[in-house]
């Protein structure tokens, strides 16, 4: 069965932004990303704009997938959170639910304990937004709300015109 697309609308994005903007202040982190399990960037805090967030999202999703694979080989369901420590900056990665991943980038102005504590609360809030977003999408999954149902072959071909 083909997996249905993961769609998010304005209300959900606004809610995610509020959560991560608060979280970045509460943790004293340098920045926060929210991505999906496939590696698509959903949202980021302002200071993350200086980084290549597209690549970060893809690599973090690969990292989460690989860590999950390790867990299953060892008889665990998953390792839902992991931590990468650098000389000055560190990453804390936490699985939000089946679809989302929260990434906190922090340095010596913060601490792992604080990040872990606040990230747990933030992840729960994000999971709630994802759930509500899914409900909204299911309610709007009729042809009149569809963006692509009526696209023509010509429109698809036009994407490839040089």
């Amino acid at each position: 069965m083909f997996e249905s697309p993961f769609a998010m609308r304005e209300k959900a994005f606004a809610a995610i932004q509020v959560i991560i903007d608060e979280l970045v202040v509460e943790t004293g982190a340098r920045g926060i990303l929210v991505i999906d399990r496939v590696g698509q960037l959903l949202s980021r805090t302002e200071k993350m704009e200086e980084f290549d967030t597209t690549s970060l999202a893809s690599l973090a999703a690969g990292c989460v997938a690989a860590t999950g694979g390790l867990a299953r080989l060892l008889g665990e369901k998953d390792f839902p959170s992991h931590f990468h420590q650098g000389e000055s900056g560190s990453l804390y990665i936490n699985r939000v639910d089946e679809r989302g991943i929260l990434i906190v980038f922090f340095d010596r102005d913060s601490s792992l304990g604080l990040v872990r504590l606040r990230a747990r609360k933030g992840s729960a809030a994000l999971a709630h937004v994802f759930k509500e977003s899914q409900k909204e999408n299911e309610a709007k999954s009729s042809p009149e709300h569809s963006a692509f149902a009526n696209i023509t072959d010509e429109e698809i071909d036009n994407l490839f015109s040089d």
């Binding site: 997996e3 249905s4 697309p5 993961f6 769609a7 998010m8 609308r9 304005e10 994005f13 606004a14 999906d36 496939v38 590696g39 698509q40 959903l42 963006a147 692509f148």
Partner: peptide, 15 residues
């Protein structure tokens, strides 16, 4: 699983 961002009006697909 494609991702449709209605806020930024973007669609992302994985090949």
């Amino acid at each position: 699983m494609s991702f449709i961002n209605y806020a930024a009006r973007e669609i992302n697909c994985k090949i």
